[in-house]
Structures are given as structure tokens and as C-alpha cells.
Design a protein around this nucleic acid. Sequence first.
DNA 1: TAGTGATCATAG
DNA 2: CTATGATCACTA
Length: 226
Amino acid sequence: MQLATFSTTEQELLQKAQWIAGFTLGEIAQQLNMPVPADLTRDKGWVGILIETALGAKAGSKPEQDFAHLGIELKTIPVNAKGMPLETTFVSLAPLTQNSGITWQTSHVKHKLQRVLWVPVEGERAIPLAQRHIGMPILWSPSPTQDQQLQRDWEELMELIVLGRLNEINATLGEVLQLRPKGKNRQALTNAINQKGEPIQSLPLGFYLRKNFTSEILQNFLYSTL
DNA sequence: TAGTGATCATAG
DNA sequence: CTATGATCACTA
């Protein structure tokens, strides 16, 4: 099996992802001649880049799906020994301006989550990075129920943004989707609109999937294989 | 210890 | 700054 090669079909990509399941991050990194950092503190995206590279995605990252020709987005997700998510999953930046015509159907969130190849990876900090195992991949698309959950939250959160009620936004809102800061630090600024419709500067926000949602995806996959 | 708010690296 | 890839870490 050749790593870091182009996949023509969905099946080919899935088989490649299934092939790397069971290997450690260190083993894959060695195959790709990629150095393994001591920890992820200053390399938070390293696991994602490593798996992208192994599966033949362009590790440059452009504003499109990882496998655009297949319509598939790749997401690695850190899990504990029970296969439960350890972190939320970033989806996309929230549009704080020029968002009047956007609907759920035309949103970046809906588009990105249309079809996702989830790759679970052991994520407990007690396990040295190089020794963490890669899990079985899950090729997923939202069920009608999941799509409705996402739409409800997205519309509720976008309403606050469109109305300029940014000061009311915090991470406790949303059942499965939440808004949290997404930037260099708390000093990061981006253009936004206040309640009076005036241009202001605001902390950039991003949409994140809560763990209860991604946990369900992983669990459903386990059941489907029994 | 879970969850929210904060943060890190890099390319363009 | 935006968009890619996310996890860290403080606090209730």
C-alpha cells in the first residue's frame, strides 16, 4: 500500500484510510519522513496534517474540501480509550459581515459537513505522540435528524450575528453546534456589525461541533459494524 | 474534570 | 487578516 498517493475514487480513499488504521502516528510519520514534535502545544494541527499527507490530500490547505474531486472533507478527531471525543471539532469561521443572504442550505457549515471522512486518533496526553494509534475511519454524511439539529443551531447562532448581538454570544449556546473564538489570541480582530448596523471590530468566531454530536457519529459507526 | 475561552503554526 | 489544521489550559 502506497501512502501519500492520489485517490481516484471514494472507495480507494476509504481503503487507504482503513489501511493506516492500527498504525501509530510515529510509524506513519517515519514512512513520510515527517519529524514528530514532542507534543502538540505548538503543533496543534500536526496530526491533521500528517493524516492528510498520508491519505494524499494537499497539505497546503486551500479554502475547499480536502478531496474536492470526491466531495469529501477529512477530519481527525482525538479520542480516549473508550473511543469518545476528547475535543470539539472546528468546522469553519463564522461570517460576521455580508451574511444577509446566507441560508443554512448555502452555508459553509452545511457544505463542509456534507460528507466527512472521520479518522479517530488516540489523543490522551499521557500517551507519547509517536505512540498514539490511528483508529478505523468513518465515512459519514449527516442523517436527516442530524442535519435538522445542525440547522436549528446554525440558524439560532446566525440570527444573533446578523442582528449584531455579538455580546450575547458565548459557547453555551447551541445543542450540537457552538460559536467560540477562532483566532491568534483574544486580541485578534475582524470586521463585524453591531446592533445599530454600524461596522465594528470583533473577535473572530468559529463554528465547532460539540462532543455530544461527534460522539454519536463514532458510536453509530460501532453499532453498524456489529 | 468538563467545558468555555484562549491559543499555536503556517501559507497566501 | 483569512483560512488551513486543531488542542491547550484555566476556572467554575
